[in-house]
Design a protein around this nucleic acid. Structure first.
Lengths: 145, 145
DNA sequence: TTATATTTGCAACATAATTGCATTAAAATG
DNA sequence: CATTTTAATGCAATTATGTTGCAAATATAA
């Protein structure tokens, strides 16, 4: 299925978003990567195809609709990845672990690893969990050792 | 023990840092709070007692020496808290859960809650874990309901 | 094809963080 | 206690990140 564009267009329409060039481009970039993509990288790749502000707004809209989710890496930089199915505007289901590689700085969504339930002190009410593991990813682990 | 200052001076000397006013002030502020303290708050409280840049450098030095640790909240804002004993320049031991309150936005270090061990895909090597729970803290939980 | 509602781009602004450098102050030395 | 050395501070300038208001452009509905 090389016809990503058609798929993306459907995705936009489904979420009540208009089919615009910047939005399609963001989806194209994000879907072509195996790890979460940083805002600075997106900005660089899109170049002058779209304004900085537009990029921020596209990302914000996508996040609100549950199309992508944001992960902050250890430096506080925003990274984005396409959500798994089941995320919607009302509810994100991205409670998987994110892995931040010290070497290549990629952020992987470890969809298969669930965050374990947590015991918190009395009174605290946990709504969301966000676990970032840092270390070496499979690829870098090989290269370095 | 109201003689914090003497204690802080020792802490600085032990870490090869000179006893300066901005450093003592930062330690004073951080130790007087029950939750992690944001950079903006520190900046505001210190006012013109110290330059912004000095504050950044003090925080950086403290973090490197293992005196404080940094936690990024859900907005990516840097927050700082004094480390538990056992942290040093070589090794931080802050693998406790951080709790980010949606209401008061405080960040609590839940020292008693350990992050559970994690199974990651083959090849990945976990070095550090960072778990942020978001929800309502005990205080706000009371007030709201 | 036109009307409407979104979306974009631009300009300006806000905040967070970093760097280089001259000045100042703390601690070490004699 | 005076002096030297080394570390830390303050200032100015710069970069990165993110936001807001508004006019112009464009996608879609009518």
């Amino acid at each position: 299925m090389e016809d990503n564009t058609a798929r993306f267009e459907k995705l936009l329409v489904k979420n009540g978003l208009k089919r615009t060039a910047p939005r399609l481009q963001v989806l194209e970039i994000l879907s072509g990567r195996d790890s979460a993509t940083s805002q600075p990288y997106l900005e660089q790749v899109m170049g002058k195809d779209a304004d900085r502000v537009t990029l921020y707004r596209v990302l914000q809209a996508f996040e609100e609709k549950g199309i992508i989710h944001k992960v902050l890496d250890q430096q506080g930089t925003a990274n984005y990845a396409i959500c798994s199915d089941g995320c919607s505007a009302h509810e994100h289901h991205d409670e998987h672990v994110h892995f931040n590689c010290d070497n290549c700085h990629k952020i992987y969504c470890l969809d298969t690893v669930k965050i374990p339930a947590l015991k918190v002190p009395a009174g605290f009410k946990v709504d969301r969990l966000n676990l970032i593991a840092t270390g070496l990813c499979a690829g870098c682990s090989d290269k370095i050792n």
